[in-house]
Design a protein around this nucleic acid. Sequence first.
DNA 1: TTGTATGCGTTATCAA
DNA 2: TTGATAACGCATACAA
Lengths: 347, 347
Amino acid sequence: MAKIDDVARLAKVSKGTVSNVFSQKRRTSKEVTERVLSVSRQLNYVPNHIARSLVTKKTMAIGLTIPHGNFFFSAFHNQFINGVILEASYYGYRVLLDMIPAQKVRTPFLSSYPIDGAVVMSPTTEDERINLMHMENIPFVTVGRVMNENIDSSPSVDNDNQTIIYNICKYLIDKGHQNMMFLNANELMTVAIDRNEGFIRAMEDHHIQVEEHMIQHKPAILSTEYMDYGYDETIQILGKLNKKVTAIIADDDRTAFSVMNAIKDLDLRVPEDVSIFVICGDLSMMVQSNPSLTSMDLQPSELGAQSVRLLMHKLGVLQGDFPEKIIVESKIVERNSCTELVPPHSI
Amino acid sequence: MAKIDDVARLAKVSKGTVSNVFSQKRRTSKEVTERVLSVSRQLNYVPNHIARSLVTKKTMAIGLTIPHGNFFFSAFHNQFINGVILEASYYGYRVLLDMIPAQKVRTPFLSSYPIDGAVVMSPTTEDERINLMHMENIPFVTVGRVMNENIDSSPSVDNDNQTIIYNICKYLIDKGHQNMMFLNANELMTVAIDRNEGFIRAMEDHHIQVEEHMIQHKPAILSTEYMDYGYDETIQILGKLNKKVTAIIADDDRTAFSVMNAIKDLDLRVPEDVSIFVICGDLSMMVQSNPSLTSMDLQPSELGAQSVRLLMHKLGVLQGDFPEKIIVESKIVERNSCTELVPPHSI
DNA sequence: TTGTATGCGTTATCAA
DNA sequence: TTGATAACGCATACAA
């Protein structure tokens, strides 16, 4: 591999000049520029990224910290990641996928993170990844609210989760539903906490008693029940316990599908007997399922892009003031899985 | 940030010793080790990854080169990526997500890739990413067959795509199907080429004439038709052209869902009128759709893990001989979307 | 088992 | 506009 000295020698300039031709940090005459570029092509020279990083103290990479454990990407994560990569590449940044829990790093591999900053997805309460970032002084942005004891505030991008659930409930209540089941995300995730508050507030505002069966939480990602979350809950609550649930709010498309299967197995129909509302689902899956599923568009790709932009501000790549919190818009997309509730006596 | 000199001074040892405590490349006495570690903790010292990389010439990161353009991850990609990350982290490697096309890198950002090797997903014919890797002398492994003019051979992991389609066809033919439609991947992908050969061979072996409508290709990822590939094709071939197709082989779950919608819109039923076989689909989606979809289990996560292992061999991290090609097993998972064809006259 | 000195390939500072 | 040289923070050969 050719080095900067080789180019400098052949182009009869100093290495400082060669450096400048590539970094464009100060002007070089057209003549010299072309000579250097020509020699570089000839020697197949490209600046060494590592050496550059050592002195500039910039790696031009950001970390994307995804929930660890035996994790699984959903369509939501997908789209989100797409947004992150696209936006990062716009600023010349690469994306390092990160999932190694702090404790598990073996000593021989221990070293600083070769990233300039990080985007932390789906924080939990007392999220250890966030503590790690904080300790190592790595600038970070979260997608979702931070709830760590020692960390007062940090830039974040989020949907307005409380309002989202509130509006979903209102949407269903307006259709006559009074008895709903909310299949929330895992209880450790801060988003689940916010959503619960929204749910409870909606019920209170509409004078509906919140019963225990109404709020469920996704099992831990490691558990065997994780994959078909929604099935057992539906069978149990609607079947065995015979709670007269008429509407189910599902965390994601996978959950919704599980629910639909359970409903079929209970000899019930969607939406005639039970309405289903999906919070974050893959657009194409929503449209193509049968019946098509009414859902919330959370704009995951926009969440990703905005989180990167926020991080770029923190890193000084983007100038000017920037907000500490960015709320990404979301809106209900009506399809065919939610229907007006027909009171029993009117049949 | 504390540096190695700071630790050396406070621990009253040389920096060489401090270095060895962390890299564990040569023994250090227990006494010294503990003193160094203690001081390091005190100063919050961690070796600088960049500086280390500069001298060792190892970045401890591998690139994951995903198809670029306005790309979109499917469940298959998801699982694959999971496999890659998990396996890479096992060897202490991080994963850099890569999608920047070679030409688009602007001069100010131009530099060598800070990776030790790369995994290239879903190669196309004359894949420019592979040419780039080859030119820059970056060790790489492909997931899928390479079909580049100038590149003779390179390590790769793959399913046996020809045989897979052959077996799917045989499976359907054994059920009495003679007129199938194959919704293949994009025609530029090498996997699509291999599959076509398998399809044609199966037809020939069973004395079935291959008609034009039988093989379709997914539109380019940038096109608007990309997202509901399968719908128009089904409406067109089964509806307007009234070809008597009784079985459809779909590239992925998204495609399968589109097909199911089209079939419904044509007032036909799955599997009574048309059988559907999915090649790569998300397990949970397959199970939870209605009817559940018969599919091929390609073990995407295993593909990911094996590709990393192969790369580790190329990088010398893993010792011993290693094969140039690894074929990951796949098998048919029967569910409820394919049925025995009942000849019309027997009704 | 530990210390010393050199080099990794670049950018940045200061002169010219 | 360009050149010379000192960092950047670490690993490693060699010496002790």
